[in-house]
Design a protein around this nucleic acid. Sequence first.
DNA 1: CCGTATCCCGTGCGATACTG
DNA 2: CAGTATCGCACGGGATACGG
Lengths: 119, 119
Amino acid sequence: MDCNCSEYHCPVDTTLNMIGGKYKALILWHLIDNTLRFGELRKLIPQATPKMMTQQLRELEEDHLINRTVYPVVPPKVEYSLSELGNSIRPILEAMYYWGTDYLTQNGLKASCSMKFPL
Amino acid sequence: MDCNCSEYHCPVDTTLNMIGGKYKALILWHLIDNTLRFGELRKLIPQATPKMMTQQLRELEEDHLINRTVYPVVPPKVEYSLSELGNSIRPILEAMYYWGTDYLTQNGLKASCSMKFPL
DNA sequence: CCGTATCCCGTGCGATACTG
DNA sequence: CAGTATCGCACGGGATACGG
């Protein structure tokens, strides 16, 4: 993988390997300027089953894109937030958001789902 | 899919549905400022089998992101290029490229694979 | 509340061979 | 050269149930 450019690596492919997972970009998007709990993320992305949500969150954590904070209380409380590295992904997500919004409006469809950026 | 935000659509998800395919972003990336033939794309992305390459190209064409031009000659000659819509994706791909490059260099790895943008 | 554990099915996708 | 056709299987990922 990674473009197999001998010992060199392809930047675009590298980025995709980090945020290309099924719900990763969406999760990161929702975490911009937000600290969210597991259940809150599930409500924002209902199509992700708990198993998938856990898996994607774990991978994002392993790649140091998000922070996972466990509060030792009963009932359990776990919060997810962007790490510094995760925050650096922001320009990509914003570019995706803007393009998607343009595309939708030009096709007569309504854009929504967390309005972080006023147009 | 598409965030199931009632009749509204999620821009980020919309974008991902267009360029989230296995080799789509990579193909679009290579097509920036370039018109390429099937075989040339295969050399640039050798990990994509002919079947996958065809599939991804067809989907990109259906989504009007690329143009497919067939020259009725022997031997066959087919050229792929970015459409206007495909070209509008450029900021996203560039953001991915820059982030990937930063990430690689900060981890002591060498970035390469088509140097379109001098840093 | 925040997950993990199992089961299991569809399909994505690689390998290989063939064609106009 | 630029693809199709066929086979086959790993695995992504859904559904459901359970656990600390």
